[in-house]
């Protein structure tokens, strides 16, 4: 019996290979043109709503007293404490959050969706609740607090460390989400290419992956830092409001509002200026605008 008898015919044309472009698709660019009224009105209202409070702040600022008020002892302490704790919280978030983001982006394991949900939980959790939860863990009779006190003689709540922990708890998800997104956007096959060149997974991460996600990492760190700088609820619950030790700028603003509104305005203006300066400085360099 013979097999089926088929066949042939080709053209001499070479099969055209789909050449891969390295870059992703681009969204159509923005261009000039009329904006429909139904979009223009709410857009203008939205902008006004965001800008008006800032205008109010500037309008009511006691400019003549500004130098004297800024030099007041409590102000400098609060500002220094805010900058130090926000930076420390960002550093902790980078050290712990980048590996966490890598695991979430690059590995599959049972319960990964649950882990991601848990990581983002502080984003939706009221900060005060976060503060209470931290107290229940690190407090004198908390899950870890008792052990820390008896073993190391360390009490965390109502210390500068507590400020950093509270800020980290609230701000780290911003970093994890940003870095995880950057890792997903970066082609994992670069890590494979590194492996074929003899790079261990750690070397590949350090020399290939990390540089590729640097813009996402910086953007995440800036968001994280800004969120930590403005942290209020978890901080006042878990760290209290002790000038020089746990009283950060937002706490100082809140306290001043009850006794000396002009001081509150000056402190707010200072916080605003610091945030804007840092964001503007980094945005130029790192954060790409579409």
């Amino acid at each position: 019996m013979t097999d089926r008898a088929p066949v042939i015919m080709i053209d001499g044309d070479l099969p055209t290979a789909a050449s891969r472009a390295g870059t992703g698709r681009r969204a159509p660019a923005a261009g000039p043109g009329r904006v429909p009224l139904a979009l223009a009105l709410p857009a203008a209202a939205g902008l006004a709503f965001l800008v008006l409070p800032l205008v109010g702040l500037l309008a009511r600022t006691p400019w003549s007293q500004l130098p004297a008020r800024l030099a007041a002892p409590g102000v400098v302490d609060a500002l220094r404490l805010s900058l130090v704790t926000a930076t420390a919280a960002t550093a902790v978030s980078v050290v712990l959050g980048v590996p966490l983001a890598w695991v979430l982006a690059r590995r599959t394991f049972p319960g990964r969706r649950l882990v991601r949900a848990l990581v983002t939980l502080p984003l939706v959790l009221p900060p005060v609740v976060g503060g209470v939860a931290l107290l229940l863990v690190f407090g004198r009779r908390g899950l870890l607090g008792g052990w820390l006190a008896s073993t190391f003689g360390v009490t965390v709540p109502f210390s500068t460390t507590a400020v950093v922990l509270a800020e980290t708890f609230v701000a780290m998800p911003f970093l994890v989400i940003s870095v995880e997104g950057a890792l997903r956007a970066a082609d994992a096959r670069y890590e494979e290419a590194a492996a074929t060149l003899g790079a261990t997974p750690w070397t590949a991460f350090r020399r290939v992956t990390l540089p590729l996600v640097t813009p996402g990492l910086v953007a995440g760190a800036v968001l994280c830092w800004a969120r930590a700088l403005g942290e209020f609820g978890a901080t006042i619950t878990f760290a209290g409001n002790f000038p020089g030790r746990t009283q950060t700028m937002p706490l100082a603003v809140y306290l001043a509002l009850e006794s000396d509104p002009a001081a509150a305005i000056v402190l707010s203006l200072l916080l605003l200026a610091v945030s804007v300066a840092i964001l503007a400085g980094l945005r130029e360099r790192w954060i790409s605008t579409p």
Binding site: M1, T2, D3, R4, A5, P6, V7, I8, M9, I10, G12
Partner: peptide, 22 residues
């Protein structure tokens, strides 16, 4: 066969004759 541009058939040979499936 397509790659190299030939007509190709399978069959049963006997001497100088090959009988194809058809």
């Amino acid at each position: 066969a397509r790659l190299v541009g030939l007509n190709l058939y399978r069959g049963r040979g006997s001497g100088h004759t090959v009988t194809l499936a058809g």
